[in-house]
Computed example of a mutant assay.
Amino acid sequence: MAASKKYASRDCGVFELTNLATSKKALRVDYANTVTLNITADSVKAKKRGRDAVTFANPMEGTLESEIQVYPFELFSIFGNGTITEGGDRAEMKTITATEAGKLTLPDDPKAGALFVYAKGDVGGTQIEGSVATKVFTATTDSDIVVGKKYDVSYIVNDSTLQLVKINDNQELADFRVDAEINQKSEQGVVTPLHITCYKATPQRNIELAFAAEGDPITLKITFDLMTDADDEFVDIYQIKSLA
């Protein structure tokens, strides 16, 4: 066998998710900052007269992890049932200045029974009672709404334009085949793709989104649990010999 070339990489490349149940592509991720493959297989030993004599390998376990800072909304669908719904209810929190005594003009038409109005800074205090019709809130007592003053308004509105991902306990997470391609560079300067195939991967429902007014942008971390598929396949790592 000829001497092997040596490679290095700092490009996590691109990976694709294929839904195992439908055999259809679910998502392409070409915006990750890191992709990390972890494989473990603990060993158990049999002893002979108190000494380790025979070693058995336990079944392999593994994870595929990725850290992402710039990503599309569709990525959240893998934590639900894989679908995105068009339209649904959304919550709004507005501060509105009164332009007419006893009334507030709303930007949306709230759902019945889902509107709350307070003096600015008094949310949870004394609620201003009233009724809504055609995007106008009319206070029961006119003097509760004073022209020029600001009011904190909360409501629920049905919006046909929103995209919705539901994440519930009664949903079963999809299993995926993950194909990753990472560009690696040899000591001679030749770029060769390294391919990693994880035959059965299920995303963990661990989502942490920490928003901050300073410092680094938020990082979304995705972890897949790796399993053996129906054909006893676990993970393949390969490169194309002709390119190498």
Rank of each mutant, 00 (worst) to 15 (best):
F15H: 01
G121F: 11
Q239V: 01
N206G: 05
A26T: 05
P193K: 02
T138S: 14
G50F: 11
P203G: 02
T219C: 02
R90I: 13
K135D: 12
T126R: 03
K5T: 04
V153D: 01
T141D: 12
E61Y: 03
Y199K: 06
S143L: 04
T22S: 15
H195G: 03
Q163F: 05
K45Y: 12
P72C: 04
T97Y: 04
R205C: 06
T161L: 10
E100M: 02
V190H: 08
I96Q: 05
L104V: 12
A244R: 11
T18N: 07
V235R: 06
S43A: 14
L27R: 06
V178Y: 04
V178K: 02
K111V: 08
K150I: 02
F211R: 11
F56L: 12
V44D: 14
T55N: 11
P107C: 12
T85M: 07
F211T: 10
A41P: 05
H195I: 10
D229Y: 10
N170D: 11
E100V: 15
E86N: 14
T83P: 02
Y7P: 01
A21C: 06
I218V: 15
G87R: 09
L194G: 02
E16H: 02
M93K: 13
T63K: 13
T40G: 07
E92W: 06
V153T: 07
T134I: 03
G62I: 02
S131W: 07
K47D: 09
P110V: 11
A91I: 08
A8I: 15
A57F: 11
Q204W: 06
S242F: 08
S43V: 15
A213M: 03
L106D: 03
G80W: 09
S23Q: 14
E65H: 10
F116R: 13
E100Q: 14
I128Y: 05
